[in-house]
Design a binder for these strands. Sequence first.
DNA 1: AACACGGGGAA
DNA 2: TTCCCAGTGTT
Length: 353
Amino acid sequence: MTVPIATDQKSLFFRDRLMDWHRPEDRPLPWKENKDIYLIWLSEIMLQQTRTGQVTPYYKRFTGRFPVLESLATAEEEDVMHYWQGLGYYNRARNLHRAAKYIYFDLEGKFPSDYPSWLAIPGVGPYTAAAITSFALGLPHAVLDGNVFRLLSRYFGIFDPIDTGAGKKLFQQLADQLIDRNNPAQFNQAIMDFGATICKPQNPLCDICPLQSKCIAFIEGTIGQLPVKKRSVARKKLVLNYLHITDGEAFLLWRRPPGSIWPGLYELPSLPEDTEVNAHLKKEMGLIPTEVKKVTQLKHQLTHREITATFYRVQISDFKRLKKGDWILVKYKNFTKFAVHRLMKKYFHIFMD
DNA sequence: AACACGGGGAA
DNA sequence: TTCCCAGTGTT
């Protein structure tokens, strides 16, 4: 790690305020009570993707049964799994056990003493290696977990996705520059505590945040957008029904209102959910179709939505009885003048050749 | 780069 | 319900 310490004002302010904010006694947790590298290792494995409150009882039970490396290394796997039961991500326990045997028998009970060696231990990735080497050995490796990603992305206003190789590299460099080399352990503890208690995912406590005055996301009102993730979490499903109402020469378009998806873009009039086509046409538009045909169904992916759109072609003799409404009558030769979203484009591409 | 891997707290 | 948690290993 040959990254220079960041000396710009923003970074200095961040480091100073963070270290000043940190009160180790504020978040007392059982694994903070000592510097036993075995116990720190164990706690960090348990804490992977798992809340502190959920870990605490497991940690106590587990350390009661396996208080030192030897007890874990010489235990039966079934016994280990039993004490992990209910905590989830069970490969953690298997890797932990495998690693314990490796350290106890192959390394003669001597724990690795640097970052790369810890990284080679089963179940230990970049985060855990940094946590162990800083907490137990005082080495200046910055931890990068969900809390740190969130805090840094907001404070520095970074919109690069955190779930790509490039993004992780960027944030790791930044964190390694920020770390207080005089006290890496306290810095790592502080940055995670801060993220967990102040810069929370939802409803962060910006009003009492000591970093507020220089927090880009707070200043620019983008707290809710950060951190950015490329891979969207399971998309929300959305069902839409569109009506392609035409007399052969023209058809109807409608402009989406602001505050919805695709604000301001045009699309075919849509049929409200749980509404029958003919009834809707007559009641809302004053139209009586000569033919209604289900034409196609298209899937469309958005960042946070999976849309299933069904298209109905509605044939009418003329638009004379069309009620006044938000829709506009568009001649086929003119329809390219209207801005439409990609889903609509897909449909037009297929059915307006 | 994408995916599997668990269970639970909070909004 | 949805989000996300002191992430890592595999493909």
